[in-house]
């Protein structure tokens, strides 16, 4: 079930609840403890501790969304804060038609897009540093193997190029790339969040990838 297909994500009301079908695996509790539904209900009744648990559960994912959308960690922190506070304020209007996760993501995407529009200019990159575990990653080994174009550049240069290519995308294209290729969210969930059809999401993803390949063409040989 798709929300309002004709509206772009930035035109959708921040906290409008996307209608959801069966709950996806994401909706279900991942760690031990009360389910999202239970926590949401308690938070709606004024239980701050319950909302604290929800923040703990989704903070890193929302931060990751805002960070990859902005490539600026200060902006990402501000946005993450705004998103959770907005979610708390809008919680009484959350009726459970969609999962809390999808609803929170919708607020996140809309807030981030509006935030960027308000600023109306590209911010300088302010990047989180790479975890040292990257050197143990198989993909990293492949990319920096002998003969690869990436072998000649440093990790920080690669990071900057990658983030610049990402920021070169339009907001709606970057949204689908971040959600699908970086966060592994399925097409139908993205469709609910951005209020578009699954076909539109696939199409945006296709064009976004092509554009990124062009931007990163020096590494694509």
């Amino acid at each position: 079930m798709v929300g309002n297909v004709n509206l772009e994500p930035d035109e959708l009301p921040d906290d409008e609840e996307p209608v959801s079908g069966a709950a996806s695996e994401e909706d279900v509790v991942e760690d031990d403890g009360p389910s999202d539904d239970e926590l949401v209900l308690k938070a709606q009744q004024g239980d701050i501790q319950a909302f604290d648990l929800l923040v703990e559960r989704y903070h890193s994912r929302i931060y990751s969304l805002t960070y990859n959308m902005t490539s600026n960690r200060e902006d990402a922190e501000d946005l993450t804060q705004e998103i959770f506070v907005k979610a708390f304020e809008a919680l009484p209007r959350f009726k459970g038609k969609s999962s809390f996760y999808t609803w929170l993501y919708r607020i996140g995407v809309n807030k981030t897009i509006n935030y960027r529009k308000k600023r109306n200019r590209k911010r300088a990159l302010s990047l989180d540093s790479f975890d040292q575990d990257i050197k143990l990653d198989d993909d990293y080994h492949d990319l920096t193997a002998k003969g690869s174009p990436l072998r000649s550049i440093s990790l920080s240069e690669l990071q900057i190029k990658l983030n610049e290519a990402l920021q070169g995308l339009s907001e709606k294209h970057r949204t689908v790339v971040v959600m699908h290729d970086m966060q592994g969210i399925p097409h139908d969930e993205i469709a609910k969040v951005v209020g578009a059809s699954v076909g539109t999401v696939r199409s945006r993803l296709f064009y976004a990838r092509r554009q990124m390949q062009n931007e990163l063409s020096e590494f694509m040989k």
Binding site: D128, D137, D142, Q213
Partner: peptide, 16 residues
Amino acid sequence: DVLLQKLLHLKQYEVP
């Protein structure tokens, strides 16, 4: 596509 996926995958190692 695969190459791009690998590059994007590296972004997961950017940790706050």
